[in-house]
């Protein structure tokens, strides 16, 4: 049983599929995220694929701030991802609202609406940092699963 679990965990960490959601960012972070997927960084080496579809995704990469208009979309997408899943907040905006923090329509960082697993700071963060963030998230996922209580959707 334990062996099977370990095997599943290894598989999970070897094939993280991304869903990238631009939650009102200035596009700076998005460009860096897309840069990860170019041949220069070649994230497919680690089995990372940008799937663009919550039904297939394991990791939700969110850039930008949450505002009143798009928070519903963000939670909707998160609800459509099958567990186990990770949320990675990218950039200063994703962490706290960044320079948009004071705007009238802004709710704040991603953690205001979703449980965030990894925060990747920067304005924008470098592609290496983003990849690092995803890898960190996967480690967290493994740790979660080695403990008996499995994270479950409420």
């Amino acid at each position: 049983m334990q062996a099977v679990k370990r095997f599943i965990n290894r598989m999970r960490s070897k094939s993280p599929w991304l869903l990238h959601f631009d939650c009102g960012s200035c596009n700076g972070c998005d460009i860096e995220i897309l840069a990860c997927l170019t041949p220069v960084y070649d994230v497919e080496r680690f089995g990372i694929i940008n799937v663009g579809n919550p039904f297939h995704a394991d990791v939700l990469l969110v850039s930008g701030t949450v505002n009143h208009r798009n928070k519903k979309v963000l939670t909707n997408l998160h609800a459509q991802m099958p567990s186990p899943k990770l949320v990675v907040a990218i950039g200063a905006c994703g962490l706290s609202g960044g320079i948009f923090r004071e705007a009238y329509n802004v709710v704040g960082g991603i953690h205001k609406v979703l449980p965030v697993d990894v925060y990747v700071p920067g304005c924008p963060p470098k592609p290496e940092a983003i990849i690092d963030g995803v890898v960190l998230g996967l480690q967290k996922l493994q740790r979660l699963h080695e403990q008996p209580s499995v994270e479950k959707e409420a």
Partner: peptide, 13 residues
């Protein structure tokens, strides 16, 4: 194979 194994053990949605 990694991909498929991972998918097989995900939550069924």
């Amino acid at each position: 194979f990694y991909d498929v194994a991972k998918l097989l053990f995900k939550e069924s949605l």
